[in-house]
Structures are given as structure tokens and as C-alpha cells.
Design a protein around this nucleic acid. Sequence first.
DNA 1: CCTACCGATCGGTAGG
DNA 2: CCTACCGATCGGTAGG
Lengths: 189, 189
Amino acid sequence: MTRSKKEVIQVAAARLFRDRGYTATSMRDLAEAVQLKASSLYNHISGKEEILKEICFETAERFLSAMEEIEKEKVSCTEKVKKLIQLHIQTATSDVTSITAFNDEWRHLSEPHLSEFKSIRKTYEERFKSIIQEGIETEEIQEGDPTVILYTIISSVRWLYDWYKPERNVSPEILKKGIVNILVTGIVK
Amino acid sequence: MTRSKKEVIQVAAARLFRDRGYTATSMRDLAEAVQLKASSLYNHISGKEEILKEICFETAERFLSAMEEIEKEKVSCTEKVKKLIQLHIQTATSDVTSITAFNDEWRHLSEPHLSEFKSIRKTYEERFKSIIQEGIETEEIQEGDPTVILYTIISSVRWLYDWYKPERNVSPEILKKGIVNILVTGIVK
DNA sequence: CCTACCGATCGGTAGG
DNA sequence: CCTACCGATCGGTAGG
């Protein structure tokens, strides 16, 4: 199974979008990255936005299906929250590029994709928030605004996408332990 | 003291950069926002990048001078870290717009500004990290990689810049209490 | 502060 | 997969 040319283009695009941003990446930049002329890209993709759209939706679907798995598990809410934090770290470290599109570049989508994307994202966040809320009700989790807790968790791993590089020799496992520890038990002794 | 036209342009630009990103904001968009023709902007500013540069550096200087104040205080490291978290929240809620440029759009700076900006930012982060490190040594703060702690803290408030709106009726004070609580004592009971 | 306009570059198409 | 090229838009300037 070799990668289709379309996949090669998508991977290169995800990297360029991360490095320069969607708007600042031209189709000529992208063409050069995959050793093609700009016009030849259009034999594989229908346009610039289609690439962004597919990156955003693929990442969103991945988060949503992981959420489904975690919801099904018969573990405490705290355990579920831990797994969700690990999921975000895993995604950010294993797929450094498309996570950017998912975090930052989706706003360049045009309608109807923009609304559809926001709605999927909203669904994911609501389900995450429900787990937090349940944890507060069962008194596993400290009293607090679930929205504040939710976004603080989601944001807290956002630095990884431009910090994490395999050359640093910091394994995702060490990161998971460290970050989960901060968020779950705090930084003070 | 009325605002100079240049300041008006900068404020409008910061808002547009936040909403659409630096690259996707055209000088014509900006001109329209301040009710001018694009060419007239150049009587007040020397170019598009100058605006970005000034927003980035002003925000950086603000963080650095706040750091100076906090370093001088005769309080525990934990207390300093708390104040730094509050500083980030304060900046994100009081100046929702320029924080974006500081977080995300600085990468569109060209040399030599890019290197200079990175260097100021690095200085800020190193000094923040020193406080964390000292806290670990004095055993106030839990054992952990100071870099991981640093970036987790800095990132954790990044959602505010597009979430925080005065209409939500969530005061910065409540946010500060909530977020500081999560980071300092964790989410579990 | 405007009108008029510059060269460069954009995303994308025609046609082979 | 390419060459050749399209109209639109970009940041910015000239000249008044």
C-alpha cells in the first residue's frame, strides 16, 4: 500500500499550514513541496480549501471517535478526563501537523463547512464537559465552572504542536505523565 | 487626550488580525475599518508589517515589565507563579486583541524583527522558568520538568482570547480564581 | 486625504 | 503532468 498522491499532497499541506498558516501558504509553495507545478495539483484535489476541509474534518472525526470509546469505558470520571488529556497529547505528538489546522486554521473554512465544523467541535466539547460535570456531581472533581475546566484542559496542551519534536528526546509518555499530573493534582505540594 | 489616528489604526488592525489572521487581513480591509482609503493609511504608518511589529513588541514589553515587578516582590515562588497566571489572564481579558498577535501572528514578522521578538519572548520564558525551578528546589512546587510546567501554564489561558467577551458576564476575577485553582491545586478533590 | 495606478502574486482554468 | 495564461487582489507609490 503506497500513499496516493493526494495523501502526499495533504501531508505536505498540513505541514505548510502549520509552519506558515493557511492563508500564507500558496498553491505554488505546496506544488514545490511535492515537486509538481501548481496547475498539476488540480488533478488530485479540487482546490485549496478542500485540503483544509479534509484535514479539519479528519482530525475532528478522530477526536469524536476516541470520545466514543472513552465514554463507553466503565471507569471513574477522573479516569475519563485523564484519558482525554492523554488523547490530546497523543494527537499533538503523533500528528503534529494536522492538529494545527484543527486548532487554528479551521476559521478559514467557508460556508457550509465552517458551520458544520463548528458544530462537530461543539459536540465534542459538550460531551467532554458532561464528563467533567458528572465528576463534579459525584464529588470526584473539585467544584468549579465546567466550561473553565474544559477549556483550560484543552488549551493546556496547545504548546505541544510547535514544541514537540522527536529530536528533543522527550517521549510522549513522559509528557502525558507530567501534564496529567499538573492538571489533575496541581503544581503545589 | 484623544487617540492619535495611528493608535486608532493599530487598535482596528489588532482586532482584524485576531478575527481573520494577519495574512488574511488586507490593507483595504483595515482602511475600511477606519473609514479611509488604503493609500491614506500610509500617512500614519509605514507599512503592514510595522503595525504587526508594534503590536507584538508592545505586548512583549508589557509582559516583561510585569515580570520585573513580580520578581521584585518578597513572596513565595508559588505566589509569584499565581501572579504570573493572573497576569496572563488579565492581559487576555483586558486586551483581547493584541494578545493574539503576541501568541500567533508574530511568526509573520520578517527579519530582523522576528529574531528580536523571539529573543524577548525567550527571555520572558526563561525568567518564568527560573521561578518555577526555584519553587521545585525549595520544595514548594511538585517535582516535574520546569519546561512542561511553564508551557502548560502559559498555554492553559490561550482559549480566553477568543472565548472571553464582556457580554458573557464572567468577570476576570472569577476566571482568575478558577484557572489559578486548577493549575495550582488540580482538578481532583 | 484622495484618485489613479504600479508590479507581483494569488487561486485556478484551458488545452494539449 | 506541463506551458501558457486568466481576472482578481495584494502591498504600496506618485502626484496632487
